[in-house]
C-alpha cells in the first residue's frame, strides 16, 4: 500500500483504472487527512448515515400521519419543524421545514432554481433531475410542461403554486390522500406516498397499484 492508502473498500482498485475525477477526489482526501483536518473513517460514517438514516420513508410517515390525525395535520401546516420534531424518529429536520397542502383547487411543486435545496431529512438526497438544468430552468415558468415530462397532468383550472427554495426554508408537499383508503393504517398509507408526490412532480400511488 502506498502511504496515502487507507484501509477502506473504495481504495481497492489500481490507480491506472481511475478516472481523472477519481484521482482528484482521492488526492484531496489524502491531503485533508494528512493535514489532520478530518478522519477518513468519519467520511465513511457520513456516507453510511446518508445511506441508512435519511430517505423518503421519513417524509412518507409524516404524510401518512397527517392523513390520519387531524390535530397533527393542523400542527404540521402551522409549524412543520415543531410538528415533525414531536416524532422522535425524524427529529433531524431542524428549524425551517414548511409543509404545503395540495387541495382539489391547488397543486404545490418545489424547486431550487439557484442550486439544489431540498428537504434532505424528509426525502433523502435529491435525485439528479432535481439538481439538473431542465427542471431548475422550467419549473418556475412552465410547471405544467414539467409535469408532462413526469407523465402527470392536472385539471386546467387547478392553480399551480411553485415554491422556489431560495433560502434555508425547506418545503414538503402534503399530497391529497388517495380515494379508496378509508380505514387504512398509517403504515399502509405510508406505502402509497412516493418521493415525487412530496416534491409535487407526482401523486401518491393508488390502492392496489404496484409499488
Amino acid at each position: 500500500m502506498s502511504e496515502h492508502d487507507h484501509d477502506h473498500h473504495h481504495h481497492d482498485h489500481d490507480h491506472s483504472e481511475l478516472s481523472e475525477t477519481e484521482l482528484r477526489v482521492r488526492a484531496l482526501e489524502s491531503i485533508l487527512s494528512e493535514k489532520g483536518y478530518l478522519e477518513p473513517a468519519a467520511l465513511d460514517a457520513i456516507v453510511q448515515a446518508y445511506e441508512t438514516k435519511i430517505g423518503p420513508h421519513n417524509g412518507a410517515q409524516v404524510v401518512a400521519k397527517a392523513w390520519t390525525d387531524p390535530a397533527f395535520k393542523k400542527a404540521l401546516l402551522e409549524d412543520a419543524s415543531k410538528a415533525v420534531g414531536t416524532l422522535g424518529h425524524v427529529s433531524r429536520v431542524g428549524d425551517h421545514l414548511v409543509a404545503v397542502e395540495n387541495t382539489p383547487g391547488r397543486h404545490n411543486m418545489v424547486v431550487c432554481t439557484l442550486c439544489s435545496c431540498y428537504p434532505w431529512e424528509m426525502l433523502g438526497l435529491p435525485p439528479v433531475w432535481y439538481k439538473a438544468a431542465p427542471y431548475r430552468s422550467r419549473a418556475v415558468r412552465d410547471p405544467r410542461g414539467v409535469l408532462t415530462d413526469f407523465g402527470v397532468s392536472l385539471p386546467k383550472e387547478t392553480e399551480i403554486r411553485v415554491w422556489d427554495s431560495t433560502a434555508e426554508t425547506r418545503f414538503l408537499v402534503l399530497p391529497m390522500r388517495p380515494e379508496g383508503t378509508e380505514g387504512w393504517s398509517e403504515q399502509q398509507l405510508a406505502e402509497l406516498v412516493t418521493r415525487d408526490s412530496m416534491i409535487g412532480t407526482g401523486f401518491p400511488r393508488k390502492p392496489g397499484a404496484p409499488s
Binding site: T113, L114, P127, V128, W129, A132, A133, P134, Y135, R136, S137, R138, A139, V140, R141, V146, D149, F150, D164, D196, T201
Partner: peptide
C-alpha cells in the same frame, strides 16, 4: 436558471 430555455426535457431515472 429560472426561466431559461433550451435545456430540454426533465428525465427522471
Amino acid at each position: 436558471m429560472g426561466g431559461m430555455d433550451g435545456f430540454g426535457k426533465v428525465e427522471p431515472e
